[in-house]
Design a protein around this nucleic acid. Structure first.
Length: 429
RNA sequence: CGGGGCGUAGCGCAGCCUGGUAGCGCAUCUGCUUUGGGAGCAGAGGGUCGGGUGUUCGAAUCACCCCGCCCCGACCA
């Protein structure tokens, strides 16, 4: 992508309304644009990151056996009356009347919706286990939206729903999601600690929320220091072991009853990026989502639901990866892998080399943002640092004479002088 | 939902207290010079001062009502 042809409205100054660093940087880097309180448009750079995050979530869900579907944003209120949940969400739920005066709502979640799909088509235990998920926009009319996409009213969420014959099966499904979550966050370079949690309006008895540690987190969290020793990227992570370790957000944490000795207890702030629930027959029973078991008896299925705040993750990623100059994207979610700073577009030799590298990198399948604007070096470097691409290639007359360009890592700041072949090889790898 | 604050050019702000029809920096456009860390000079464009009502000869400025946004607290992917 040529920057001169892209749409990247960066800001030099920090908009007054943004309080936390991720919100400030998302606005300054031209990723989002606020339309109303808690409602944002995603501009090209922000949308590119959102799609990267989405893609990882899709891959890990499917790896864990979940099947993608797409349910609507608008639902009939009838379904929620049937589940008995119509009033549980209170004013958080946006209600709408359609032209026939039928009561509709903008879905804050889709348990009823998916349970309805299930009950219409599944009859036998032989079709279980089943896990259906989608990534769809939700609306929760928060009393006080804030912190940009971290607490928006409209937000993109991945929600998966598992169906099993019995509690034991449901727990297996739960554990599979538990593991998939750890892997998902890990792939984005984030360590999320699973914590015991309340079930809220979703209902149920077993629940964990996944919290990323960050100074600007919304909730106070407490956890066993043993978590610090765990390698979350290990292939043989044990869900049972992780579940046994103590970790809880403030609301669940009782210092008097805490099983962890004080010297082993760690406290910090956390950003909740995922939340999983096992709620048994909470929806299947009232809504008649049943199967015939091996014994010939009809019984309600055991369900769980599993959410990841996809749009919130974009903010959380920035909270976890930035410095005073801007964002530092982990490669897995970067909007572009490389930025080329064409220092002197008016210099034939230097500009020619930059063009050539742009072309070669693109053909090697590398996502490149090519800054060939007629701007000063300082402005270009500042833009690159702000938007945080993992790699910057600087091409100027000085190096071009020697046939060299500079490669710089945004994360480490390390630089290397390379010739074009070595550069392409290194970045294409 | 309780408490507080703000709304003046695309962004950041001043002007308001003490009424006299709007200003600064950045950004934008044109020209020239410049070009390895957010350039310089010269010129130009851009505002129903959030909206309404009232007071007044006269309202960005005073009063009242409404709307929007932000912050603190109680609640949540």
């Amino acid at each position: 992508m040529r920057l001169s042809r892209y749409f990247l409205p960066v800001l030099k100054e920090t908009p007054a309304e943004a309080q936390i660093v991720s919100h400030q940087l998302m606005l300054r880097a031209g990723m989002i644009q606020q339309l109303a309180a808690g409602i944002y448009s995603w501009l090209p750079l922000g949308y590119a990151v959102l799609r990267k995050v989405e893609a990882i979530v899709h891959e890990e869900m499917q790896r864990a056996g979940a099947i993608p579907i797409l349910m609507p944003t608008i639902q009939p209120a009838d379904l929620w009356i049937e589940s008995g949940r119509i009033n549980d969400y209170g004013k958080e739920m946006l209600r709408i009347q359609d032209r026939h005066d039928r009561s509709m709502l903008y879905g804050p979640t889709n348990e009823e919706n998916v349970t309805d799909i299930f009950r219409r088509h599944v009859r036998s235990f032989k079709q279980l286990p089943l896990n259906l998920y989608h990534i769809q926009w939700k609306f929760r009319d928060e009393v006080r939206p804030r912190f940009g996409v971290m607490r928006g009213r409209e937000f993109l969420m991945k929600d998966a729903y598992s169906f099993d014959l019995d509690a034991a099966g449901a727990e297996t499904s739960y554990d599979a999601m538990f593991l998939a979550y750890l892997r998902t966050f890990r792939r984005m370079g984030l360590t999320a600690i699973p914590m015991q949690a309340d079930t809220g309006p979703i209902g149920g008895k077993l629940s964990h929320e996944f919290q990323i540690l960050a100074k600007t987190g919304e909730s106070e969290v407490h956890f066993d220091a043993a978590f610090e020793a765990i390698d979350f990227s290990a292939d043989d992570l044990s869900v049972a072991e992780l579940k046994a370790l103590y970790a809880a957000a403030d609301d669940k944490h009782d210092p008097a009853a805490c099983p962890v000795p004080a010297e082993r207890l760690r406290s910090g702030r956390g950003i909740e990026v995922g939340h999983i629930f096992y709620f048994g027959t909470r929806y299947s029973a009232p809504m008649g989502a049943t199967v015939i078991g091996p014994d010939g008896a009809t019984q309600p299925v055991h369900m769980g639901s599993y959410g990841i705040g996809v749009s919130r993750l974009v903010g959380a990623l920035i909270e976890a990866n930035h410095d005073e100059k801007g964002i530092i994207w982990p490669e897995a979610v970067a909007p572009f892998k490389v930025g080329i700073v064409d220092l002197r577009p008016d210099d034939e030799l230097s500009h020619g080399l930059a063009e050539q590298l742009y072309d070669r990198l693109q053909r090697a399948g590398v996502e490149v943002l090519f800054d060939e604007r007629d701007e000063r070096a300082g402005a270009k470097f500042a833009t690159m640092e702000l938007i945080g691409l993992p790699w910057t290639v600087t091409v100027g007359p000085r190096g071009a004479k020697e046939g060299k360009v500079e490669l710089k890592s945004r994360a480490s700041g390390e630089t290397a002088e390379l010739d074009p072949d070595a550069l392409v090889q290194r970045l294409a790898g």
